[in-house]
Design a protein around this nucleic acid. Structure first.
Lengths: 329, 329
DNA sequence: CCATGATATGAAATCAATACCACAAATTCT
DNA sequence: AGAATTTGTGGTATTGATTTCATATCATGG
């Protein structure tokens, strides 16, 4: 049933129906007729047809690596809560960390499909930059910081530096690092730099054999821990770029009989639920993921309202939670 | 830029452009002209406008309680991976277990003219049935089983029965139960029935004072454990309807000095990541959440293709993972 | 060499909505 | 009372695409 059929059924003109759904001048008499007809027929206007004319879809595209990652889920929760409050809906694409799929999705979002895009990417290539700048709708990057774009990000550098410093102060003299691909500017590069900075500040030296790059999984953390902890000289602390990796490390320690924190201290970034109830509760930095999502959504909404706004960067705070995994003294 | 402008720019007719994007007859000459013009202008057709005419949106509405639940995230991951493979996009709404919002979202989906709906609800009221049957597109229920609808669900009954039986075989004679609202046919009712069945089969008796109903949270599990474990007579095993609840129980046991499994055995349904690395690894039943999502998506796609298909129910398997929390002998 | 079917083409109709316009009626301001 | 707004109305143009239709061209088999 379309607007013409419905108008006929209600005994009013098409224009009257359109005004009913768009707050135009309308007499009480017609308003009631239309309401009665809606009750009877269940008519509701097609958003596709509307948006052909108005160029407004009330849809926001969200691109993220995967939902089964707690941090992504938390960001998305934040996005969703703000958007639904303002009558926007969420068009979701997961990319499994495949950045070609990110580009594809952006293409898909390009024309008239969405009013704005929120992108949680891990890497950021020249291709990203090219495609994003050809986008006709506002874009917000979450978790990453890049020139010329609206960003909401975390203090990855500070969190990593602070956590590492805590372990050094607790007496670690042979600190190790398990991070992720440095192509990832946030979880990879910034956290790496924070770790290095803390080491340098402490006067300790950085040992190549104590540095590992893992995937974003527990199994990968387990493997890297195994490699790190079966050499002839062992580190006495491990800074992990993510909680998930730290959990893998804890699993390995449990399996190999290493005691945490007595033999080895562990800290990681993220404050995921699991870190709290792990076999050894993990010292971690809480990043405001949900806030990042809601702030990104707010930023997007204001960019939709005023498209010529200058891009800005919002860097969110963090706080450290000390738990048993570094409780050596 | 619209199709007319683009056609002019490419030096062809509107019809030719439309045929290019829809596999109609088209000479090589025009095809090349159009490709060159796309390269230059970056034109791509408006999906809104297309769907006005074709009544196909390539959109699937997904309703779920919350993203921060691991099981929901896993199901959604499964849905997303299949749908995106077939060129569909995912319109996602989270309801925070508020079923009025579920109904609202269905209305929103109607306006968006989605091609199908996947619903992960916990309760299923007459209102649900009424609104769903007025939906003019196929609907798939995930996790719940209801007459007249396409469903993908788990063997909640079998899993609960099996886990309970394991604890009884390990010597439990005073089994307790912490479940969720029985309005929830799957996680509430079916798992409850499975528990009861196992008890009956063992010849044990069911004690009212050992039965608790919790929320879907760790804190709630903690509280119910406290209540259960501070009476004068204590149970020697607790079957928990969800891993999250079990984690709360483990936390309480840790705080109150009760040993697992020596003093009390614990098992729960879900096989969440946390259960594996908890202070005491939990015996659990793995439910194929991601598969449920992908199968639901496949079912939906075939229902979209053949709308007059008879609704069918797909019940997925489970397998038990025995871990330390029941390792009494 | 002509009948037939496959390929190719662009004008015009159509899809379901909103925007604009001209004008009528009711209300408020001088 | 008359002018100036505000409110109310329906017809028509417009939005950006696909679909239909009438017609043209080409190749192939008899």
């Amino acid at each position: 049933m379309n607007i013409s059929d419905f108008a006929k059924a209600a005994g009013v003109s098409k224009s009257a129906v359109s005004r009913y759904f768009n707050d135009g001048y309308l007499s009480k008499d017609k308003r009631e007729k239309i309401e009665a007809a809606i009750e009877k027929t269940g008519y509701s206007p097609s958003i596709s047809a509307r948006s052909v004319r108005t160029r407004i879809t009330k849809l926001v595209g969200v691109i993220l690596p995967k939902l089964s990652s707690e941090s992504c889920a938390r960001v998305t929760d934040g996005i969703s809560s703000v958007l639904s409050e303002y009558g926007y809906e969420l068009l979701l694409v997961t990319t499994s960390n495949n950045y070609h799929k990110e580009i594809e999705s952006l293409e898909l979002f390009r024309q008239n499909r969405v009013d704005g895009v929120i992108l949680l990417s891990t890497v950021f290539t020249d291709l990203h930059r090219a495609v994003l700048s050809k986008m006709h709708v506002p874009v917000i990057l979450v978790g990453q910081k890049h020139k010329g774009f609206n960003c909401v990000c975390h203090d990855d550098y500070g969190a990593a530096r602070n956590l590492t410093r805590i372990m050094l102060e607790k007496g670690s003299v042979k600190p190790a690092y398990i991070g992720v691909d440095p192509e990832d500017k946030a979880a990879g590069e910034a956290r790496y730099n924070g770790f290095i900075k803390a080491i340098e500040e402490s006067g300790n030296k950085i040992r190549k054999e104590f540095m590992e790059i893992a995937e974003f999984t527990m199994d990968s953390g387990y493997e890297k821990a195994k490699h790190l902890l079966s050499g002839k000289e062992l580190p006495d602390s491990i800074f992990c770029a993510t909680d998930t990796i730290a959990l893998g490390v804890i699993m390995y320690c449990r399996d190999s009989g290493l005691r945490i924190p007595e033999d080895i201290m562990i800290a990681s970034v993220g404050d995921s639920k699991v870190g709290r109830i792990a076999a050894v509760p993990i010292t971690t930095a809480h990043l405001h993921y949900k806030t990042a999502g809601s702030e990104a959504a707010k930023m997007l909404l204001s960019a939709i309202k005023q498209p010529d706004l200058i891009p800005r960067v919002l860097q969110l705070d963090y706080y450290v939670i000390e738990r048993q995994s570094t409780n050596k003294i």
